[in-house]
Design a protein around this nucleic acid. Sequence first.
DNA 1: TTGTGGTATGGGCAAATACTCACACAACGG
DNA 2: CCGTTGTGTGAGTATTTGCCCATACCACAA
Lengths: 317, 317
Amino acid sequence: MSKPEVTTTRLDDAARAGWLYYVAGNTQDEIAAKLGISRQSAQRMVSLAVSEGLVKVRLDHPIARCLDLAEQLKQRFGLKMAEVVPTDPGSTSTTLGVADAAAAEMTRWLKSETPIVLGIGTGRTLKAAIELLSPIECPQHKVVSLTGNIAPDGSAAFYNVIFNIADKIKARSFPMPLPVIASSPEERELLHSQAMIRPVLELSAQATVAFVGIGDLSEEAPLFIDGFISREELLALRQAGGVCEIVGRAFDRNGVPLKGLTNDRVASAHIPSRDTAMVIAIAKGPKKLPGIEAALKGSLINGLITDEATAETLLAG
Amino acid sequence: MSKPEVTTTRLDDAARAGWLYYVAGNTQDEIAAKLGISRQSAQRMVSLAVSEGLVKVRLDHPIARCLDLAEQLKQRFGLKMAEVVPTDPGSTSTTLGVADAAAAEMTRWLKSETPIVLGIGTGRTLKAAIELLSPIECPQHKVVSLTGNIAPDGSAAFYNVIFNIADKIKARSFPMPLPVIASSPEERELLHSQAMIRPVLELSAQATVAFVGIGDLSEEAPLFIDGFISREELLALRQAGGVCEIVGRAFDRNGVPLKGLTNDRVASAHIPSRDTAMVIAIAKGPKKLPGIEAALKGSLINGLITDEATAETLLAG
DNA sequence: TTGTGGTATGGGCAAATACTCACACAACGG
DNA sequence: CCGTTGTGTGAGTATTTGCCCATACCACAA
């Protein structure tokens, strides 16, 4: 006999046992007594009810939908980790919710006893996340910046958050005292070969986990708004097919880094290897969608924190 | 609301834990690890999710015996609708199972696109049912109370559930700001002629469907326990042949309303006409048997939700 | 009758889960 | 300011559950 073929009365009994268990809240012992069978049989009845799909559980909470979407994201894009937070339909904030979730995820990593190397990108979302981070003492960990922290005018780049996080978690921090984008490829090489910088770059390659934002390349591209690139450079990136930027480096819609242009001068560390590190992007909203899609296609990341609406669009596409 | 009042984020966490447990099939240990909390807390979260009613279990199996009994009930007593849930032999609860079924039946009605008028009685069973009701937005419907909601001491009658249900389903609600039993027939007339009350009474007569409980008139009669009638009044009702009470109005064993006594002063609306409305009683257990029999004999109802044991006794008698 | 293959049963045990308790901490009220 | 009260937490412990396995049972064929 190929099919399991369960008889009707058997399923009836299973349903009854399942009812007594799940609805009436009996223990298997009690069910056994009431149905006049052994506890083991009662257990079998209950598990039969489950395996035959008689028992359906539903969670009456918006969160349930989010978890479901997260699971789908992981499946579909081969992510190791995904988190979807509820969308607040009214809000236009690009950080609401995801920042909290990112802070929570960071905390989970930081709670580890064994030392980790935490790579940190840049951006508004990340800054918001770190502001939400609860202070926690983790002297065992190291936190390393993936981007330079010097703005074009020589001031500290505002959305470079390495100091903020280091302060919050009392870990040793490794900032990258460089401009985000050097003036020429040669300057970048020169800077990268400095004794102060090299160990930071090496450390960033060893990151256990990295949190990065995804920047769009629209008219309001953070790289442009914050003055790291000129309007002409922004247009050139778009012309070349660029749709997003991670730690300053521009990618096309397939997540392939653009050749030339500002990419030749980006002084940031490379995104850590997805084989050895968790690279978690924090991004939501329609403006970031092409960027997220690119990052997923190009396997630039293996973790994503986003919101419901964004997740739905990603899965629909 | 005198409820414990659990904050949103706490419920969110509970939902998350519940999802991981029931949907994703994690053990509590795994949940604890994933959420970065202790196993005990994970357990608490899961049980919170259950106790807050976030987790709904449904059994997708018509237990043959119950269906059979339901069919027989419909045939024998000319009901339009009957539902029989399994009996838990050991339990003394008067709501277990039937409340779930009632909630499911309500949901079925509420899902209707076309606006309905939902009449709601009172009582423990009904309250339990409404607590199990999943929140569902139905602004198209109206829900009207069939009984007054003022207790003898002036407080809100505890088992009047119009507000609970209105809150759950986001429908316009029509409570009846009256005492359940007026001090005299004259007072009742006066109250009923009020401009605030009349529309409610008229609406209740137009109900599409009404859910009512059946109260017994034993020493533990809810009317008496909750202080709506005195012991003397209770005894008088029994003396006069009363066996049950629906929306406060007492009936004899044939389902004929008693003349005089407290019935002259009951301020409740009449049970909607069985010709135009579904009137569904929710009741089980030996104590309610005479009441259910009376309601069936007097054709006070055309729908019944009860349990196996009660159904069997009804059919045997 | 006996053997054989398949299936159901219950004992036993480790894992998982629920519960109780004591304590920490914050909010509240004198 | 200090007790009081309520709430949340972790530790420890009892209960419950899931699962393996030896055994009993049954139908059927030799």
